[in-house]
Each structure stands twice: as C-alpha cells, then as structure tokens.
Design a protein around this nucleic acid. Structure first.
Length: 97
DNA sequence: GACTTGACCACGG
DNA sequence: ACCGTGGCCAAGT
C-alpha cells in the first residue's frame, strides 16, 4: 500500500466544502503522482465509518460512481442540498473548485 | 513475473 | 449524445 498516496488523497478530500462535490480526476490533478484510478482505489480501501466526506466525490460528468454505497451517497448529498437533474447527474454549479 | 481487476478519464468517430 | 479504445496504477491471483 502506498501511504503517501493515501495521505495526499485524504488531505484534499477533507477540504471539499459542504454542499459541493468534486471528481476523481480533479483530486488526481491536485495531488502529486495520483491518477483518477488510484483515487478510486484509495476510497475503496478506506475503513468503514471514517469521518472523511467520501460521498462528495463523483465521476467526471457528475454521475455517481458505481459502488455498493451509491444509494447512501445520493441521500447524503441530497441532505446537503445537492440536486440531481432528471438524468441523475449533478449540475456543474455544485462542483468544487 | 505475467495477467486480471477496479468508487476513473479523455478523446475520436 | 452514445459507445469503443487506450491510458492509468495499486493490488490480488
């Protein structure tokens, strides 16, 4: 496991503002040496019940990534005021940065 | 070491 | 707008 990668990804993740989302690729570009795929890998391996806002990370294009917690993710984002359009995508105005 | 598997992405047709 | 395709990289077999 690459600890440096995990640390960088979680650091960026922790500063996503409430009520906004960001993408795997954006996080990858904000870090050194991470790629979109490796960001997904880190999220998958995070322990359950951690305090990081993993649910604010979506795919490029505003669609939720395909994983077991997607339903929870959608609920939690809606609780923060994020809106999904008729095709299930999050409009660009919710993206951070 | 070779090959497969993902919470991915950009791009061309 | 909807597919392929190739690139990506850490882990697991």
């Amino acid at each position: 496991m690459k600890e440096a990668l995990k640390e960088q990804v979680t650091t960026v993740m922790a500063r996503i503002p409430e009520g906004r989302v960001t993408t795997y690729g954006t996080i990858a570009r904000m870090t050194e040496g991470a790629t979109a795929r490796s960001v997904g890998y880190v999220l998958r391996t995070l322990p359950a019940g951690h305090d990081l806002p993993w649910f604010r990370i979506v795919r490029s294009g505003g669609v939720l990534a395909d994983h077991g917690g997607a339903d929870d993710q959608r609920r939690r984002l809606q609780d923060e005021g994020i809106v999904f359009d008729e095709r299930g995508r999050i409009p660009a105005r919710f993206f951070w940065p």
